[in-house]
């Protein structure tokens, strides 16, 4: 346990200091959310209808944006070999690493989602449901992006490949998380159900993605 805690602390520190922490993904997220209304048009009604989808999608993009770094650098600089031999095993190391990455890079995402929801014309209630959905979705989205990152670590144009691999796998989480915001906005009473489904899909990714990432990374070491 203390080994995992040490690993978590190091990865948190590294993505904070070396990777710029949450600043990059947050700035990217904000830029996307600023441009979207300019593309959609100023109609308040259209904007409010599009809000849950656009905001969830912006988060998905910002989770993908830095996924290349997650395992790419470790593969290149030899850290991966050391983690593989470190004791806890690659799957746990991958889980801890991705969790630290998710926390360090995406912690402002629910806040951004809440205020963006208000700015797009959603009610405070709907904005809150959406923010809660995205807070539940973010770990799962990062896990899947990390899995794709592990598969394409060290490859040319890994960024493109990651997006292509991760997109279909992220479909359920995207649907449920944005669905929570939409259900709250439309008052269908299904926001809670959507939140539960988001949590379930995210948890599943939390269990399966590290194992998949470890299998992919082990193949890369051989």
């Amino acid at each position: 346990m203390s080994a995992l805690a040490a690993l978590f602390a190091r990865e948190l520190r590294l993505s904070w200091a070396g990777g710029g922490g949450a600043a990059g993904p947050a700035a990217f997220n904000l830029a996307a959310l600023t441009l979207a209304p300019l593309a959609i048009g100023p109609s308040a009604e259209t904007l409010a209808a599009a809000a849950p989808g656009v905001i969830a999608f912006a988060l998905l993009l910002s989770a993908l944006q830095s996924a290349e770094r997650m395992f790419g650098e470790d593969t290149a600089d030899g850290t991966l070999e050391l983690y593989a031999l470190a004791g806890p095993g690659l799957a746990l190391a991958a889980l801890v690493k991705m969790a630290a990455f998710a926390l360090a890079s995406l912690w402002p995402a629910p806040l951004i989602a809440f205020f963006a929801g208000l700015a797009y014309g959603l009610s405070a209630e709907a904005s809150f449901a959406l923010a809660a959905g995205l807070a539940l979705a973010a770990p799962g989205l990062v896990m899947i992006a990390g899995f794709a990152g592990a598969l394409s670590a060290g490859l040319k144009r890994a960024g493109l490949l990651i997006a292509l691999i991760a997109a279909p796998l992220q479909v359920p989480i995207l649907i449920f998380a944005s669905g929570a915001g939409r259900a709250a906005a439309e008052g269908t009473g299904l926001a809670g159900a959507n939140l539960m489904m988001t949590a379930a899909a995210s948890l599943l990714a939390l269990v399966l993605a590290p194992m998949g990432a470890a299998a992919a990374l082990k193949g890369r070491l051989e």
Partner: peptide
């Protein structure tokens, strides 16, 4: 695995640490 300390070509050092 638990008994091995490995040093490869790449040292596994992080530039920012």
């Amino acid at each position: 695995g638990e008994a091995i300390a490995f040093l490869g070509h790449a040292e596994g050092l992080k530039p920012s640490e």
